[in-house]
């Protein structure tokens, strides 16, 4: 098997994940794109495990570990997203600008508006 095909597939999948992380506004869609990027890395690991015929199976082991890490990551990430939704009533990451520098843009921002009220009193 020529190695170039799966490796190029992994690179394209990673680029798709990069686009999703940068372009999406919904936090859950960002999590999905992160999963796509992790899967691209997994594909690379499996390909190079097969290429080097590793006796210790380091590549496939690391793939399993990355899958477990991704499961833990998506669990924690969804807990955070649900917490943000409970406090702010939105998961739109363009509007969650409390930690941003510069002007907080209070007009179009639910999160910073509650903050303003909290500060005002």
């Amino acid at each position: 098997m020529h190695l170039v095909y799966p490796v190029v597939i992994a690179a394209l999948l990673f680029a798709v994940g990069v686009y999703g992380v940068l372009a999406r506004r919904n936090a859950i869609l960002v999590l999905m794109s992160v999963e796509l990027m992790l899967n691209a890395v997994n594909l690379n690991l499996v390909v190079f495990d097969m290429r080097w015929a590793d006796r210790l199976h380091g590549g496939q082991m690391l793939t399993l570990f990355v899958i477990v890490l991704a499961a833990a990551e998506v669990g924690i990430g969804l807990a955070l997203v649900l917490l943000i939704y409970r406090n702010r009533r939105t998961v739109d990451i363009d509007r969650l600008r409390t930690l941003a520098e510069g002007d907080p843009d209070p007009d179009s921002d639910v999160g910073s508006m509650t903050d303003d009220e909290g500060v005002r009193r």
Binding site: M1, P6, I28, N39, N42, V46, D49, M50, V74, L78
Partner: peptide, 25 residues
Amino acid sequence: LTAEFVAWVQVLIYVGAVVVLLLFG
């Protein structure tokens, strides 16, 4: 790519668990 066990773990955890978790989210 001859990684059978990883393939089934992928189906079980990603398709079975992670996507369901995302749908719940």
